[in-house]
């Protein structure tokens, strides 16, 4: 067993998802505390450039599997490479971003290796030679502290946008090792038949700024001022379940327990009361602004700034003001 830390760098089309760099930053700290090396794992096709990038973001070494069977994320194919690497190299920890792909990949690999898993962590620390993590449970209503048994690697996924992307250092150098794919195409039971990109649509989980509307927008056209403010700020548009269930806006926009969990720098809640299930998805946003005509609305207990008033008057005024300032 080693003290080394492995981090999977999620990518699509040769471009890294920033959650991979966030995980790499966590890996850097953990590797330093354990006194080990930090290795990045890059899987895909034509991803050599990414390996170099991983070193610049802090990896000491990179394992690359560049193969046509790995072009798109497929659980079995990806998990087989990482499982094999972990068996050969015996890292102390394996860290990934808690994206959908990271959650399934980490779970599958941990089961194959028979090791402990902590998903969607918001704090990661080293105590002695083992990790201690904190993660939200009960949809954010409690926080659990989790420690690991003796099995290695300890497998951790980190929540998106909680940990900073490390600074890039173009001068860093490191060793790149090519490893092959672990499964041949014929041994992979799943085939990707098609992909409908969500590019240009809502990407709530990535957004720095989210402007959301609830029942208070009173109809599909009520989302127009919400949209205008979101666009002015270069942000995404969210919604409460009440608005989604009413059919005013598609489910993809729903924030909360049964929707998306988001953590933008700025969350503007308009005509949203602040039910516990909505809060579950957004209350860890860095700054929360609420516009609601009811001064008793629970959302004000979680907001940093509040405006009591009609959203149809205040939201357009905000849009105008931002337009002036942002030129």
């Amino acid at each position: 067993m080693s003290n080394n830390v492995f981090v999977w760098i999620q990518q699509a089309g040769g471009k890294a998802d920033s959650i991979g760099w966030e995980a790499l930053g966590v890996g850097r700290t953990v590797a330093n505390d354990l006194g080990g090396q930090l290795a990045a794992i890059v899987l895909g096709e034509n991803v050599a450039g990414l390996a170099q990038e991983a070193i610049q973001y802090g990896a000491d070494t990179v394992f690359v599997a560049d193969d046509a069977t790995l072009t798109n994320f497929r659980l079995e194919a990806y998990a087989a490479v990482i499982t094999k690497l972990a068996q050969e190299q015996e890292p102390a920890a394996l860290i990934m971003g808690a994206s959908n792909a990271g959650l399934e990949l980490s779970a599958y690999v941990a089961a194959k290796l028979g090791t402990g898993l902590a998903a969607d962590c918001t704090e990661v620390a080293v105590e002695g030679d083992s990790l201690t993590i904190v993660r939200p449970a009960l949809i954010g209503n409690v926080f659990a502290k989790v420690t690991f048994g003796d099995a290695r690697p300890q497998v951790v996924t980190v929540r998106r946008r909680v940990f900073p992307v490390p600074e890039m250092d173009a001068g860093r150098s490191g060793e790149i090792t090519n490893v092959g794919a672990a499964l041949a195409e014929d041994d992979i039971a799943t085939k990707i038949e098609g992909f409908e990109s969500a590019a240009g649509e809502v990407s709530l989980t990535d957004a720095n700024i989210i402007v959301s509307g609830g029942r208070g927008v009173a109809g599909p056209e009520g989302f127009e001022p919400i949209m205008a403010l979101a666009e002015t700020l270069g942000g995404a548009m969210g919604a409460s379940r009440a608005a989604v269930d009413a059919g005013w806006i598609p489910y993809a926009h729903q924030v909360g327990q049964t929707g998306k969990t988001v953590q933008p720098d700025l969350y503007v809640a308009c005509g949203i009361s602040g039910a516990i299930q909505h809060l579950a998805g957004m209350k860890t946003s860095k700054l929360i602004v609420a516009v609601n005509k009811d001064p008793e609305a629970p959302i004000f207990k979680y907001a940093h700034y509040g405006i009591v008033g009609d959203l149809f008057k205040y939201v357009p005024a905000l849009t105008e003001e931002f337009k002036k300032r942002l030129g």
């Binding site: 090791t115 207990k301 700034y305 009591v308």
Partner: peptide, 19 residues
């Protein structure tokens, strides 16, 4: 291999809302 040591309530945010 993953052990839940303790479970606590989320930290209370100190910031009061500014109206």
């Amino acid at each position: 291999q993953a052990k839940w040591q303790d479970v606590s309530l989320p930290p209370v945010r100190e910031a009061q809302v500014e109206m």
